[in-house]
């Protein structure tokens, strides 16, 4: 993108309450449910466009959530039941009971709708093979490596290939589990490379923060076939404006990426998705400018929230995105 500091979302937004009510109501017809989903998707797309995001999608409004949605449509999985994430929050965890295989492009309807209803650049989020494996019980494959590679080759690659065939140009592979096992980064690297093998598109990898602060990821980055990483930084940064290391604690690891020879783009997380407070445009500006300096090239900096915003209210989410857009404008003015 020719514009400096392009802005983008990571993926999920909280679903509109009226849509959820309709799709869960057994008395509502299938046609009405389709209409409700389309309306919600359109609302998200247009809201993100109106706010001024450069790269948009639909807030994953049709997906149950990032793990359960793909697993529903892949051969070889059976749901086992819910397992705790924290407190009273649970996720539906599946068992791998046979060879995993792609059945159909479960994001095709979603992508086609977004493509038909937006003129902006689109970034399609797709759950990665490593995370699908890590969040499942494996009762079939001999090792985790074997399962990860089977998912990369037999599920994610055909899905991505099909999406690109439909016109997708930017694919974001979501891998929140990637950095939780620092000793398994080799298999993570292979999983991405196998997932994108032979496919012509721009690939973005989204990895959440873990206690390792991306230190295990950094040496792998030049070897992974991804042009961009969208990563979390805001959640451990200070809320003070400023361009010095003390103010920008959360972003210092960017220097490490450069030291390891990564020359691609970073989608910097400038907004903490776990708090309701809205970051000021000035704070976001400084996070962007610091990152541009740390990477040594402002054209490598994309701007986004840390992660999907689905745990925040829609009002908070859109306010955060508004601030991101304004912060990017301020940063562009500084660079002129």
């Amino acid at each position: 993108m020719s514009k400096l500091f392009p802005t983008q979302e990571i993926g999920s937004l909280k679903k509109p309450a009226d849509m959820l009510k309709k799709v869960k109501d057994p008395n509502v017809s299938d046609e009405e449910k389709i209409k409700a989903r389309n309306e919600a998707a359109l609302l998200n797309i247009k809201t993100l466009e109106d706010i001024g995001l450069d790269i948009v999608y639909d807030g994953e409004v049709r997906r149950v959530e990032m793990y359960e949605e793909p697993v529903r449509y892949v051969d070889g999985f059976e749901f086992a039941g819910r397992v705790r994430s924290w407190d009273n929050k649970y996720y539906n965890k599946a068992r791998v009971v046979g060879p995993v295989a792609f059945k159909q492009n479960f994001h095709a309807e979603e992508f086609n709708f977004v493509k038909d209803n937006s003129n902006r650049e689109l970034k399609v989020p797709v759950t990665g093979a490593y995370t699908l494996a890590d969040w499942s019980y494996d009762e079939h494959y001999k090792s985790k490596d074997e399962l990860v590679l089977a998912l990369a080759r037999n599920v994610v690659r055909p899905l991505v290939k099909d999406l690109v065939g439909l016109g997708a140009k930017i694919i974001q592979i979501d891998e929140p589990a990637a950095t939780t096992h620092p000793a398994e980064m080799d298999i993570f690297r292979e999983s991405i490379n196998e997932s994108v093998k032979g496919i012509d598109a721009k690939f973005v990898v989204h990895a959440c923060f873990s206690g390792n602060d991306y230190k295990a990821l950094a040496p792998q980055m030049p070897e992974i076939k991804a042009e961009q990483y969208t990563l979390e930084f805001a959640n451990r940064d200070t809320w003070n404006t400023g361009l010095d290391d003390d103010a920008r604690k959360g972003f210092q690891v960017l220097k490490l990426f450069k030291e390891h020879g990564f020359e691609g783009e970073i989608g910097i997380g400038v907004s903490d998705v776990h708090v309701n407070e809205i970051e000021s445009p000035e704070l976001i500006r400084d996070r962007i400018l610091y990152s541009a300096k740390a990477l040594g090239d402002p054209t490598k900096v994309y701007v986004n929230p840390d992660c999907g915003l689905r745990t925040r209210t829609r009002e908070v989410s859109f306010d955060k995105i508004r601030s991101i857009v304004k912060g990017a404008e301020l940063a562009r003015e500084e660079i002129k």
């Binding site: 397992v83 994430s85 924290w86 407190d87 969040w135 939780t180 096992h181 873990s210 206690g211």
Partner: peptide, 13 residues
């Protein structure tokens, strides 16, 4: 804050 239980996909306070 919530913190991950080692390398699990489960968190403790």
């Amino acid at each position: 804050a919530l913190n991950r239980i080692y390398e699990m996909n489960t968190f403790y306070r």
